[in-house]
Design a binder for these strands. Structure first.
Lengths: 210, 210
DNA sequence: CTTCGATTTGACCAATCGGTCAAAGGGACG
DNA sequence: CGTCCCTTTGACCGATTGGTCAAATCGAAG
């Protein structure tokens, strides 16, 4: 039943080069806006050579998304239901922010895909992602019910984490334009640390507010 | 010095129709991904007819962005330095969220433009927008210094408001996939109301947390 | 009804799109 | 050195791109 040949050294390298170039282009232009010529030029290969390694533009894009999705969902899986609630959630925030800082192209590719209606990953969103969120939401709900964090809609809390962390990579240009020089992520780290600690609450004295 | 002819009734209507169609297409595909044929079909006009009203694809896109930017910046201008700090900021949050709910195409157009490096609006970002943010940051800083809201980096607070509100329109597909049926904005309103009140703090008892 | 400018369109253009193909080049192994 | 297969490419294809143009049509004022 095995008819797969083991990939050559050169195959492995060129596939990587192509996917890296495709990530660069797709994440800036979207699927329709990206062109094979551009990807080929960035990869330093000829266009027919691209199509020797990937059968079509769609195939490149699909391979890119497939490789991205697991990386993107992993941090959510790393939340430990038996850990300290605040620290577990703060850890997730930090992991997500690090992802946004270290893999801005991946973040943008994902963002542009969703913005354009996510036609190619819709099944994953309403399948794997939804299940994972439901699961995590249950954990967070348990923490809130036990009074270990302030009451909060767990799903919208997760959305907030996604929004606040991805914003720093996806809207990078806007943020740098407003802030001027310097690394926005330094300020972001401090800010999000404070913000989420306040959201999750320090304990009992929260309901007496205002 | 005036050489502008007053626009005909039919000119006004068709320009609107074209810009509306262009908003639809540009906000889904980005600049490069959008095609004149598509815009023409959505507008119900022939392609040469488009180019009778706008001299080029660029011209349509530019007109669209120009019209959008003021609308997009207005809510920030509406913050009243002499008002109640928490209510002023909460009002801004609500206005931004309403904008995201009622004008999702405009929100996505803006998002896709920034994602692609904002080559056409970079001057506005580092000019008008930055000044406006600086100004508002000063106001917020004053409120924080006076102890009327919890201490917070004003610029990152503004980023947070942008991120959390726009997320609900820009990532609409993902949110609906995770939440299932129903209007995400209903939950968003309640969630953001609670979240930002906690961020802004209820008063003096916040520093005793943890 | 006629006139004249505003409006609309079919036909067309060069450039670029994704993709094909046959032929040439390269590298490991005998 | 020769062979065989993996790799690379120049030339090319039909379709689509943004944009042009002359001719046809429309609509309001006389």
């Amino acid at each position: 039943m095995k008819d797969e040949k083991p990939p050559t050294r050169i195959q492995k390298k060129n596939r990587e080069v192509i996917l890296d170039a495709a990530l660069e282009v797709f994440s800036q232009e979207g699927f329709r806006g990206a062109t094979l010529d551009r990807i080929a030029k960035v990869a330093g290969l000829s266009k027919p050579n691209l199509l020797y390694y990937f059968s079509s533009k769609d195939a490149i894009h699909e391979a890119l998304l497939r490789g991205l999705l697991s990386t993107w969902l992993d941090p959510l899986r790393a939340i430990d239901p038996s850990g300290d609630p605040v620290e577990e959630i703060m850890g997730y925030v930090r992991r997500k922010l690090a992802l946004a800082r270290d893999y801005p192209r991946e973040s943008r590719l994902f963002a542009i895909e969703i913005l354009q209606g996510a036609p190619r990953i819709a099944p994953v969103l309403s399948g794997e992602l939804r299940e994972l969120v439901d699961e995590t939401a249950g954990v967070i709900d348990g923490w809130a019910a036990a009074g270990r964090i302030a009451p909060v809609d767990p799903r919208h809390l997760i959305f907030s984490i996604w929004a606040l962390t991805q914003h720093y990579s996806d809207f990078d240009v806007q943020i740098r334009a407003v802030l001027g020089d310097g690394d926005p992520f330094a300020g972001a780290e401090i800010h999000l640390e404070a913000v989420f600690r306040r959201i999750l609450g320090g304990g009992p004295s929260l309901s007496g507010v205002n």
